[in-house]
């Protein structure tokens, strides 16, 4: 934040003269503008011509540019072509980008923050998670880079609900089998839409469910693990650690996740006490 504020102070958007919002570059000259400002200007240019133009002159240097580059997050960016009228203009927010960043790091980096095996063993999945829908929406929006993904979220939620209903009866399957079932079902549901990132996505969804946290709290803990903000989230992480310490089984289960097939009766005590 400090960095971008400083650079914007010296380099305002040439169109609104304000700090640059949603930094966008023209593809030839790489002059920088607010996304909205340069799109508005391109629309004005286009409105003066009978056909949709294929290029726009840079307001600063007059070079012809064919597309707009925006949302560069260090790994990927979006390219919008002038002759496609810049599509419908969904823009990834900072939170979306943070989530995408998680997908550019090694899977499992935040696994230590949350006790995934406990989630399955103590059958915490039977408690409904009121934040899951919003979390899924943001996650799929980020991965698909599209705003209108309601139907995918619905689909995944439906599959997840189905999975829960099937596993309401106790003591039929081991937690490991239930977990595998969850992974298989959700990845089948998500794969047509997010393709190569499906496996990672399923891990992330499992992690979010296991955390039992609100989206904000989850983001903070995650950021802590990625080393994004070292100070601000520390108390939350500490709180999470404390809550983990309160569960005497956590240590044992961390070391050996495959042993003890069914201790769910024992774990249920903790669900009750929560």
């Amino acid at each position: 934040m400090e960095l971008s504020a400083a650079s914007q102070g010296t380099n305002p958007c040439p169109i609104c003269l304000g700090p640059i919002v949603q930094e966008s570059y023209l593809d030839t000259c790489f002059h920088k503008f607010c996304y909205n400002c340069i799109v508005q200007w391109t629309k004005v240019v286009a409105s003066k011509q009978s056909l949709l133009p294929s290029s726009v002159k840079c307001p600063l240097c007059k070079r012809e540019n064919y597309s707009l580059i925006r949302g560069f997050d260090g790994t990927s960016f979006e390219r919008l072509y002038v002759n496609q009228n810049f599509g419908n203009g969904f823009f990834l927010t900072k939170a979306h980008k943070c989530r995408l960043q998680c997908y550019h790091t090694e899977p499992g980096i935040a696994n230590a923050a949350f006790d995934v095996s406990r989630y399955w063993k103590s059958r915490k999945y039977l408690q409904s998670n009121q934040w899951l829908q919003s979390w899924l929406k943001r996650e799929i929006q980020a991965l698909a880079q599209d705003e209108d993904i309601e139907i995918i979220v619905h689909h995944i939620l439906g599959v997840f609900d189905c999975f829960l209903r099937r596993n309401e009866q106790k003591h039929v399957k081991t937690p490991e089998i239930i977990r595998e079932e969850f992974k298989a079902l959700v990845s089948d549901a998500a794969r047509p839409f997010i393709a190569a990132r499906t496996n990672h996505f399923v891990d992330e969804m499992e992690l979010f469910l296991a955390s039992g946290l609100t989206i904000e709290a989850y983001d903070q803990v995650y950021a802590e693990y990625l080393g994004w903000n070292n100070s601000s989230a520390s108390n939350i992480a500490a709180a999470v650690e404390r809550s983990n310490e309160n569960t005497p089984v956590a240590e044992g289960s961390n070391e050996s996740t495959t042993i003890i097939p069914d201790l769910s009766i024992f774990y249920e005590y903790y669900i009750g006490s929560d």
């Binding site: 040439p14 169109i15 003269l17 400002c37 200007w41 002159k57 307001p59 600063l60 007059k62």
Partner: peptide, 9 residues
Amino acid sequence: KNAWSPAWT
């Protein structure tokens, strides 16, 4: 007129 650019002040 035609050669206006929003970068002018």
